[in-house]
């Protein structure tokens, strides 16, 4: 069992095909699999459906794949920071399925956990509920949402060991564990691969069973909204 690959391109080898469904981790530009996104751009895979909370910004993150028109459809909760996205969506070139953020996270988690559907209060009485079965439990309406099983998951972690155990850092964890679990195959890109035995088994955030391929690389880790306060004198 060898999970470590020398580059994002090598890790993606044999896994990409036009029209596939990819689940991507990240929130905004935080904890996004930027190297694998670049690898998909280079591979030129088309007609992609991508389940990701956001769609990157112009020129970075998933915005890269929008610029090259490799994306057919996004499943996202918030896409406000990307002018090219807006242009393609309003002109009808790009499909968009809005999911409430928690519904999207749970759909990915459920898909990975073998749960084909679940009921939630989120979206009851809104456009999100249109066409979805409603069930009343204890006097309250809930709508049925489906689990997502992706063809491929691309995620970003802080550290991996060679068996694929992952540790994330701060709020860069976000959608990565749920996205990882939803994929039939999952590739994790990490900042550091540490020797077997050096991660505390009690402190592993995502066990290696969910992770099939690992690639280590340099990350830009761009900041979307740099907010600071002044040091008091």
């Amino acid at each position: 069992m060898k999970k470590i690959y020398p580059s994002a391109e090598a890790a993606l080898e044999g896994l990409l095909r036009d029209g596939m469904l990819i689940a991507a981790g990240g929130f905004g530009l935080c904890g996004i699999p930027e190297l694998l996104i670049e690898g998909i751009r280079k591979a030129g895979t088309k007609e992609l459906t991508i389940a990701s909370n956001n769609a990157g910004v112009d020129g970075f993150g998933l915005g890269v794949l929008l610029a090259t028109k490799q994306v057919k459809k996004m499943i996202s909760s918030y896409v406000g920071e990307n002018a090219e996205f807006m242009r393609q969506y309003l002109s009808g070139e790009l499909e968009l399925e809005f999911n409430p953020q928690g519904t999207l996270a749970e759909r990915l988690r459920a898909g990975g956990a073998g749960i084909p559907g679940f009921y939630t209060k989120t979206g009851v009485g809104t456009v999100i509920a249109e066409g979805k079965p409603v069930m009343n439990f204890d006097g309250q309406d809930y709508i049925l949402e489906r689990g997502i099983v992706a063809d491929l998951s691309i995620v970003k972690a802080w550290k991996a060991d060679p068996s694929g155990n992952l540790v994330f850092r701060k709020t860069a964890r976000n959608f990565n564990p749920a996205a990882a679990s939803s994929g039939k195959v999952c590739i994790a890109e990490v900042e550091e691969i540490v020797p077997l035995g050096s991660l505390d088994p009690d402190s592993i955030h995502l066990p290696g069973i969910y992770v099939h391929r690992i690639v280590q690389g340099q990350h830009e880790k761009r900041i979307e909204q740099r907010t600071t306060r002044k040091k008091e004198a």
């Binding site: 905004g28 530009l29 709020t171 900041i223 600071t228």
Partner: peptide, 20 residues
């Protein structure tokens, strides 16, 4: 709160994508 200038961490943001 927001970090001091120079102490921003790309891995630590709020839901508005601001560094915290």
């Amino acid at each position: 709160p927001f970090p001091f200038e120079g102490e921003e961490d790309a891995d630590l943001i709020n839901a508005g994508k601001q560094t915290i």
